[in-house]
């Protein structure tokens, strides 16, 4: 696990591969191509790249128009603007018509760091989840990003792909094959299940190791597809381990934790704990400082697991 790559870089690389495979793929950006990593694509395929300027609403609806004519547009900007500034365009033009647009949103979550709370999207998953038919992908590392970006292009319909700014450890190997809609079990255990997404997957694995040393085994499940959620895997976790901790770099309101809880309470109610941002805005700081401040370190996951096991046994 030595190498660290940002998922936004993996996205940029994946676009170059996609361009070769699928001539219908086009890319749009809103004056952030250096940050969203669409620059390489724009240089190599200038006629398939549309610079839209600082106009996110226009970009999303233009992507919709391109999709009606058979193109597969990847529209990129920061998560905060893709889902906030252009919400109505994503909802009413792309979502309502189920257009084949891929929204590749980078700089999601608090690990944006220095730029501070105005740029740290903690609500994008929640906003996308309530749009009927929207698929939401939140890859855990560079390897998973590349595979899921390729899969998104094959998937008919709107897809939101959540990407990060910060270089993060690579968790998965070359032979790893994620499938849209299928959660991936990474560890076995019976004390509880940690259901994690995005950068929290690696942290969940570290927490599992710490717990192991304490004599507690946990199941770890990677949910790269938040919608449609792999409900069968969630229900199985509830039956098999009797307690669940969710972990996401997002508000605990409306994100992965909420999605899991909705399934759990309707099928097999078990105690749950939520790791994520607890109804606060972000702020400036180093990603590591912020992850600690917002209670998202492996140690916090460990404590949550111990707490949830306590509730299970009480």
């Amino acid at each position: 696990m030595g190498e660290r790559i940002a998922t936004r870089d993996a996205y940029g690389n994946a676009l170059l591969k996609l361009a070769e495979i699928n001539p219908n793929v086009v890319v749009l950006d809103a004056d952030l191509s250096k940050s969203t990593k669409t620059t390489a694509f724009s240089k190599k395929y200038p006629e398939r790249f549309f610079q839209m300027g600082i106009a996110e609403a226009d970009m999303m609806a233009t992507a919709g128009g391109l999709a009606t004519a058979g193109k597969i547009p990847f529209a990129s900007t920061f998560a905060i603007f893709a889902t906030g500034r252009a919400y109505d365009q994503v909802r009413n033009t792309i979502g309502y018509s189920a257009l084949n647009v891929k929204i590749a949103a980078t700089h999601a979550g608090i690990t944006v760091g220095d730029d501070g709370g105005s740029h740290q999207s903690i609500e994008d998953i929640a906003l996308m989840r309530v749009i009927p038919g929207m698929t939401i992908l939140n890859p855990a590392d560079a390897a998973e990003t590349e595979k899921l970006v390729l899969a998104a292009a094959e998937h008919e319909g709107p897809v939101y792909i959540r990407l990060g700014r910060e270089p993060m450890p690579v968790v998965f190997g070359e032979d790893y094959k994620p499938e849209i809609g299928k959660a991936v079990r990474l560890r076995e255990g019976n004390g509880a299940t940690i259901i994690a997404t995005g950068i929290m997957v690696e942290r969940a694995l570290i927490a599992a190791d710490i717990l192991n040393q304490k004599g507690i085994t946990v199941r770890v499940v990677n949910v790269h597809t938040i919608k449609p959620l792999d409900a069968a895997e969630v229900i199985k976790a509830a039956w098999d381990t009797g307690a669940i901790v969710t972990a996401e770099e997002h508000s605990i309101i409306g994100g992965l934790g909420s999605a899991v809880a909705e399934v759990v309470v309707q099928n097999r109610p078990v105690p749950m704990e939520f790791i994520g941002i607890k109804d606060r805005f972000g702020q400036s700081g180093k990603p590591s400082e912020l992850l600690t401040e917002y209670g998202m370190d492996p140690e916090h996951i460990v404590a949550a697991v111990e707490k949830v096991i306590g509730r299970k046994n009480s």
């Binding site: 549309f50 609403a57 226009d58 970009m59 999303m60 609806a61 233009t62 992507a63 919709g64 128009g65 391109l66 999709a67 009606t68 004519a69 547009p73 109505d88 365009q89 009413n92 033009t93």
Partner: peptide, 11 residues
């Protein structure tokens, strides 16, 4: 939103 959509079609 329609002019943006039309632009996409024209592109």
């Amino acid at each position: 939103q329609g002019l943006s959509v039309g632009n996409g079609m024209a592109l």
